[in-house]
């Protein structure tokens, strides 16, 4: 088993986009730089604690929405707009987690020396399912591969525990799957969600 936790499909977070996620109870800002690098940072600006997921990407930097402090790829503060001449001290730094794109998904928190398998896949969509991860895994069935992926039809399913009650179902298909088949898979995932949520409340 791997320590990498899926947080998005590879296409689910556009370049220049930033979003919030939860990994093992920790709140993260996941962002995708203009050049295509993905990052996972503590979702808290070192200045006044604003959520960095409300911020905005400028090239290879993430800027905080509140007072515009900029942070580079390593999490270190690079610019403070209110003090343009100041070189920010190295102590101002956002804690970062390993983050990588592989096999059609974005992953967080594993050992960079052992990335998930590079199997070509195309992101389909991510659905929040309001059941615990173990419940959804049991409903999906199948044997997890080395990266924890299970088959969902011809798609691969990656599961993320958002919190104790909610699981994110990330889906990716083989690259050449037709649009018709991809839409059918999306609808099958909706049906599965309805079924497992009803099953839980029944």
């Amino acid at each position: 088993m791997t320590d990498w936790i899926p947080v998005s499909t590879a296409t689910g977070l556009r370049r220049g986009g930033v979003m919030r996620s939860f990994v093992c109870g920790q709140e993260l800002a996941i962002w995708h730089s203009a050049g295509g690098a993905v990052h996972a940072w503590d979702n808290r600006c070192p200045h006044r604690g604003m959520r960095l997921s409300h911020g905005f990407v400028r090239g290879e930097q993430l800027a905080c929405l509140y007072h515009g402090w900029h942070y580079g790829a390593d999490g270190a503060c690079t610019a403070i707009p209110a003090h343009p001449d100041l070189v920010p001290p190295a102590s101002i730094c956002v804690p970062t987690s390993p983050c990588i794109e592989a096999g059609g998904f974005v992953w967080v928190g594993g050992d960079p020396a052992h990335p998930p398998a590079e199997i070509p896949r195309l992101g389909l969509r991510s659905l929040h399912v309001e059941v615990p991860l173990a419940t959804l895994r049991a409903h999906l069935g199948g044997t997890p591969d080395a990266d924890g992926l299970v088959p969902f039809g011809i798609a691969a399913a990656a599961l993320q525990a958002w919190d104790d009650r909610t699981t994110v179902l990330h889906l990716a298909t083989p690259p050449k799957t037709s649009t018709t088949d991809r839409i059918a898979l999306s609808r099958a995932a909706e049906a599965l969600r309805r079924e497992v949520e009803e099953w839980q409340t029944a």
Binding site: S8, G12, L13, R14, G17, M19, R20, S21, R125, S126, L127, H128, W162
Partner: peptide, 12 residues
């Protein structure tokens, strides 16, 4: 809006 990535892209 966390559960709605497609809505997020459309808003953008």
């Amino acid at each position: 809006l966390d559960p709605y990535p497609a809505i997020r892209d459309w808003i953008f």
